[in-house]
């Protein structure tokens, strides 16, 4: 009485399920970047006698340059090319179709970064806790705060940091998220107001000479340079990264009731971020 189908990976039902999975996975994140569907690896549809179906999907996702706080639809985001160290997510996703509506009920992801295209003279991704890179981010924030009138920002999260060897020393490239802050003396605290202004910034330059541009989620701020008077150093309220994480990874979520649908890859699961408590649809 149970019907098992293996439709083509590029079939409409596979594409529909994969896009639901992509949006669901992106909605799980509070840090890092949105991921875009790259390829549907496999699909199986189990249809029960009551007509409800379970989709077991294996998909390949690629990191985009849109931060998860950026309201830009993932379809309009740019996938990072290999040369900029692409980050790939492989996910097993279980979805249920009840009454025609597809919902994700479980997933498991592992994340890997491309290493094969690293070249001499190119930007190389640095660990998010790299001291020199974080100093560069802090210098970028000071540069930014020097040119913003009546408003100060503090660091919410560092998204990416990379460096390149040039004649004047290491050149850094950084991406970070800022939030409006209340600053007194040398201490800045993020505004708790949910309407506090947030932005996604990119900085480029030598260690103490960053050029910064910020996108305040649809408002592009002017590019500035580092010729302003320095303000007191701001304590970085950086999203904490432990161990040797090099990038933001896809969250791993596991529904024990559907464990049979998810492939057993315990060794690979060790690479994912510690499991977030599952909040599964009833």
């Amino acid at each position: 009485q149970i019907n098992v189908q293996r439709p083509m990976c590029d079939s409409p039902e596979a594409e529909e399920a994969a896009l639901v999975a992509q949006d669901y996975l992106n909605a799980q994140h509070k840090h890092g970047y949105k991921y875009a569907l790259n390829r549907i690896e496999d699909i199986k549809i189990v249809t029960m006698p009551d007509g409800n179906s379970t989709f077991v999907l294996e998909i390949d996702l690629l990191e985009t340059d849109c931060h998860v706080l950026d309201p830009t639809p993932v379809a309009n985001c740019t996938v990072r090319p290999k040369i900029l160290t692409a980050v790939e997510g492989d996910c097993d996703v279980v979805l249920k179709r009840v009454g025609g509506v597809l919902t994700v009920t479980a997933f498991k992801c592992k994340t890997e970064e491309s290493r094969e295209d690293i070249c001499v003279g190119c930007f190389n991704l640095l660990p998010l806790n790299d001291t020199a890179a974080l100093e560069f981010v802090n210098a970028s924030l000071i540069t930014l705060n020097n040119i913003t009138a009546n408003v100060s920002y503090t660091l919410l999260e560092v998204g990416r940091v990379s460096s390149q060897v040039v004649s004047g020393g290491p050149q850094y490239s950084a991406e970070f998220v800022i939030v409006e802050a209340n600053c007194t003396d040398s201490v800045c605290l993020p505004l708790s107001d949910p309407l506090a202004e947030r932005g996604f910034c990119t900085a480029l330059g030598l260690h103490s000479q960053p050029t910064v541009a910020c996108k305040m989620f649809n408002i592009l701020m002017p590019v500035v340079d580092a010729n302003n008077t320095a303000v007191p150093a701001l304590p970085p309220a950086v999203h904490v990264h432990t161990g040797s994480l090099r990038h933001h990874k896809l969250t791993s979520l596991h529904d024990p009731y559907l464990v049979g649908f998810l492939s057993a890859e315990s060794a690979e699961s060790a690479e994912v971020v510690p499991v977030v408590p599952a909040v599964v649809d009833a």
């Binding site: 293996r6 439709p7 083509m8 990976c9 590029d10 596979a14 875009a36 569907l37 790259n38 390829r39 549907i40 690896e41 496999d42 699909i43 390949d60 690629l62 996938v79 090319p81 290999k82 692409a86």
Partner: peptide
């Protein structure tokens, strides 16, 4: 008992699209 021959004459090359994995949207 009679048997039914279901053999169909093949007149051209068979091009079977791979079922899975699907197309690569960006790069492999």
């Amino acid at each position: 008992p009679a048997t039914l021959d279901l053999t169909v004459a093949q007149t051209g090359p068979v091009l079977l699209a791979p079922v899975c994995p699907g197309r690569v949207r960006f790069f492999k």
